[in-house]
Amino acid sequence: MPDHAVIIGTGPGLSASLARALARRGLGLTLAARSTDDLEDLARETAARTVAMDASDPAAMAALFADLPGPLRVAVYNPSARSKGPIDALDPEAVRRALEVTAFGAFLMGAEATRLMRGNDGRHRGTILFTGASAGVKGFPRSAPFAMGKFAQRGLAQSMARELHPEGIHVAWINIDGAIGARDDRPDRLNPDAIATAYMQLIDQPISTWTNELTLRPMAEPF
């Protein structure tokens, strides 16, 4: 039974590029998203399972990891949610929902992935990656909920790295510091295939040089 990778929050950009890279490596794949209607072609191309789920639902997250068909070696968390507007005009329930998706869901995945990876053999038992953003380093105006979620996600990853690196579980938070595009000839956009290459480099890092935070920024910064 091949080692397995889980990507939560799978869509047509970065996560699709990463799914293809992991499939080429020979890992089994589970692709999870709130809706899997648009994942049929990608699932067929990568021989992946698809699971429709709410990443902020503890029962759904537990069920996802309880049903994997192989040893978990890679787990990636991509989902985030925004609620934009002046701080005094934000809907509290929309803010709560944004934090549930961006931060609480990341915690749920981190906990479930850790439980499984602690049972793996080897000095490198697995890799857990969280897709961050510029907002996890600097809060932008009229975007407090996104900053709150990404700062929390970054703190989660830092804490997990300190706890889990000595146990052979690699944890990293990746700051996607720019807009993702589809072409290499745009100097102000990050190419999703190139981002996926960086993720694979994190997965392949020797244990003596584990990165716990990585910033990926386009050649010409738009902000």
Rank of each mutant, 00 (worst) to 15 (best):
L216E: 12
D38T: 10
T10W: 12
L22N: 02
R183T: 13
L18F: 11
R73H: 11
P166D: 14
P79W: 06
N120M: 02
W173L: 05
L64N: 01
L190W: 10
R25G: 05
G119Y: 07
R162G: 10
E112F: 01
A60M: 11
L216D: 05
G28L: 04
G149N: 11
R96G: 07
A113M: 07
P145F: 09
D3K: 10
R24T: 05
Y77N: 10
T50C: 15
A220V: 14
A89C: 05
A220D: 08
P222D: 07
A33W: 05
A19P: 12
F107C: 00
E40W: 02
L64C: 05
A147G: 05
A55G: 14
P166Y: 13
H170M: 02
T102K: 06
R25V: 00
D57C: 03
A19S: 11
F104H: 15
A60F: 05
D88A: 10
S159V: 02
L29W: 06
Q201L: 08
G168C: 12
P145T: 06
A47F: 14
E93M: 13
D41Q: 14
R49F: 11
I195T: 02
A144G: 03
L42H: 14
R115N: 12
V137H: 10
T10Y: 15
D193G: 09
S83L: 13
L72S: 07
G70A: 09
A161F: 12
E167R: 13
R24S: 09
E100N: 10
D204P: 11
L129A: 07
P166F: 06
P192I: 13
A133Q: 00
D185G: 11
A179S: 08
L27C: 08
T30S: 15
E163V: 01
R183N: 09
G9C: 02
T131P: 06
M219W: 12
T209H: 09
V51E: 08
G126R: 09
D193E: 15
E112K: 02
P145D: 12
A47W: 13
G70Y: 13
A220T: 04
L164P: 11
Q205N: 02
P71K: 05
A81R: 06
H170W: 15
T36C: 15
E93S: 14
P92Y: 14
T50M: 08
D193A: 12
L68N: 12
G110Q: 07
V6A: 03
S159D: 04
P86M: 11
R186T: 01
P222E: 06
P92M: 14
L116Q: 12
R20D: 11
G11T: 02
G28I: 01
E163S: 03
R20I: 06
Q205Y: 09
G119T: 11
R162I: 03
L27E: 15
A113Q: 04
G28Y: 04
T36W: 14
A63H: 01
R96M: 09
H124Y: 07
M200Q: 08
A198R: 14
T131I: 12
R44D: 06
Y77S: 01
P218I: 03
L18T: 06
H124G: 12
A135H: 15
